[in-house]
């Protein structure tokens, strides 16, 4: 699968402080990429660098297979819609007039205004001044602006910020439908694990400016599957024994973490351990939650 976005060693430094450090992002075509991290981790800065709103200190950005530079930036962005941090709007104008401005500047057909208003379900509010919109309506207008040119890539930075649960659910449904309906690739940043969990197909986790995890959400979920924790009187000998018997292990404190297995297989192993005079002290079933994994990766309390 082709990558729509690729970054290599992307960094942003202010003085001696790295806001983003050596980030190698890869966003596959057609994915909903969840860019997850605590507040202030560097999500918005990374997305702004991809959009050319902030200049990287080091590294390279490739979008649609083309290396982005100041000369081809806008040409590349013709196929990109974005909503960064908060929606952009002119409060004294109506929703339709706002979209008219961005539609004209983008040079896309007028009909797109009608279409995107339908997509974000704002067609009945289009003649109301945006200053009178609720936050949720403003977010939907922001999404409508981003969708105006039916972009191949949509970059949404915290699109559910400040929304109530119903608004969050509505926005999530809307975003989820985009890849199927319009073949878009979507990058959604969030500090909410639950949001990314329900939305994304691939996830990147950023901590203090560094990408600490990037893979499919399925793989992240695998980490949260049940495991067995084994404790013996001699873990060093047990490690060798397990390896000889084709059982993978991972040391954690005084325990060896091994994959879940059938009872008969576990019985065989415990019997063999006894025959080899390795005192088996404890076998426990353990399950890591996604939050535990997030916490391990980011070292920060997760927002749920």
């Amino acid at each position: 699968m082709n990558n729509i976005i690729e970054t290599e060693g992307l960094s942003k430094q202010y003085g001696n402080v790295y806001r983003v450090k050596d980030v190698d992002l890869s966003v596959p075509e057609g994915a909903i990429y969840g860019f997850l991290g605590p507040n202030g981790a560097g999500k918005s800065t990374t997305l702004k660098m991809i959009l050319g709103l902030t200049k990287p200190t080091a590294g390279a950005i490739t979008v649609f297979g083309k290396r982005v530079n100041s000369k081809n930036r806008l040409e590349n962005l013709k196929h990109v819609g974005s909503l960064i941090e908060s929606p952009s709007y002119y409060g004294h104008l109506t929703g339709a007039e706002n979209l008219r401005i961005f539609q004209t500047l983008r040079g896309v057909p007028k009909q797109n205004i009608v279409d995107v208003l339908k997509i974000v379900r704002l067609e009945n509010q289009q003649h109301k001044k945006v200053s009178q919109y609720s936050l949720g309506m403003k977010q939907r207008l922001g999404l409508a602006s981003a969708l105006l040119g039916y972009p191949k890539l949509l970059i949404l930075d915290e699109p559910t910020n400040g929304l109530d649960p119903a608004g969050i659910s509505e926005m999530r449904e809307l975003i989820q439908s985009l890849p199927q309906k319009f073949g878009m690739t979507v990058v959604v940043s969030s500090h909410l694990l639950s949001e990314v969990d329900q939305l994304a197909t691939r996830v990147g986790i950023i901590r203090e400016g560094e990408l600490v995890y990037q893979d499919s959400l399925t793989k992240l979920h695998q980490y949260s599957k049940q495991h067995l924790a084994v404790r013996t009187l001699n873990n060093e000998v047990t490690k060798a024994f397990l390896s000889q018997n084709g059982v993978t292990w991972e040391a954690e404190d005084d325990y060896l973490i091994i994959p879940q297995m059938r009872d008969t297989r576990m019985a065989e192993i415990s019997k063999a351990l006894g025959q080899n005079n390795i005192g088996l002290v404890r076998i426990e079933e353990r399950k890591k939650s996604l939050e535990d994994i997030f916490l391990e990766l980011t070292g920060t309390a997760v927002s749920l």
Binding site: L51, G52, L77, S88, Y90, F102, L105
Partner: peptide, 17 residues
């Protein structure tokens, strides 16, 4: 001030030079 209030520069700058 309409641009500052509505934070529109960040959107405009992704559309036109």
């Amino acid at each position: 001030d309409v641009e500052h209030k509505g934070q529109t520069f960040k959107l405009l700058e992704t559309i036109i030079p």
